[in-house]
């Protein structure tokens, strides 16, 4: 599903910062892996490259056997829309849209009409136990509820992979457990999942832990 070959990335903000120094990685379909590492180890950068939110300098990145390189903004947007579901630490829900509208948003960019996408959104919210909250704005929801809305949003376009950036970072331990349980369930249904985290409890729930240190993969266990 994902193949990285010798990926390098350097940031040029003032002094050049060589963040990724040759990443080689293969992730199979249906795998659930976690990426761990100290801050500055390059894990966020790696996730951004995987999510086509950022570009890399050299190397090759294959997503579902497609080489991701030199894409136009529009093409990248299209790939993000159809291939990748994002879950963020800070949920990143749009504040003035209710839960249902937030969940339905990826379908809006696919050109699905309002009725259909709202119906789909309600189904996903129902699966995540949030049906009654569908018409609430994000600020009326608890952290756990918000993250579940975000998960529903990541799932609605039926992507190939889910990328989660510290999905439990803003949640208490009980809610964290619940979110991990949901992610695990989603994975069990065949979704490839990559989670960036620094929490031992989260990474222990995954099949494979990739330890990143100073821009290279230290070990995979």
């Amino acid at each position: 599903m994902i193949r990285l070959e010798n990926i390098h990335k350097t940031y040029y903000n003032g002094a050049p910062l060589h963040v990724l120094k040759g990443i080689n990685l293969e992730i199979e379909q249906g795998e659930m892996v976690s990426i761990m590492g100290a801050s500055g180890s390059g894990k966020s950068t790696l996730l951004n490259i995987l999510g086509i939110l950022d570009t890399y300098d050299t190397g090759k990145y294959y997503l579902n056997n497609t080489l991701i390189r030199n894409l136009s903004e529009s093409k990248a947007a299209e790939l993000r829309n159809t291939m990748i579901g994002f879950i963020f630490q800070s949920f990143n829900l749009i504040a003035f849209k209710n839960a249902m509208e937030n969940v339905a948003l990826p379908l809006y960019y696919q050109g699905v009409n309002r009725k259909k996408r709202n119906k789909a959104a309600l189904e996903y919210l129902d699966q995540l136990g949030l049906k009654e909250w569908a018409h609430h704005l994000p600020n009326e929801l608890s952290g756990g509820q918000k993250q579940r809305v975000a998960i529903a949003r990541a799932l609605i376009a039926q992507p190939k992979i889910i990328l989660a950036d510290e999905p439990t970072g803003a949640l208490d331990s009980k809610t964290s457990e619940e979110v991990i349980r949901i992610l695990r369930e989603v994975n069990r249904e065949g979704m490839t999942m990559i989670i960036v985290t620094h929490e031992q409890s989260v990474s222990e729930a995954t099949d494979k832990i990739i330890h990143l240190k100073d821009g290279i993969i230290e070990k995979i266990c």
Binding site: L53, L105, Y109
Partner: peptide, 15 residues
């Protein structure tokens, strides 16, 4: 921020 979110979800710049 909203623009960023929309982009991540697959909104094209033109849209």
């Amino acid at each position: 921020k909203e623009i960023g979110i929309r982009k991540a979800l697959g909104a094209k710049p033109s849209s």
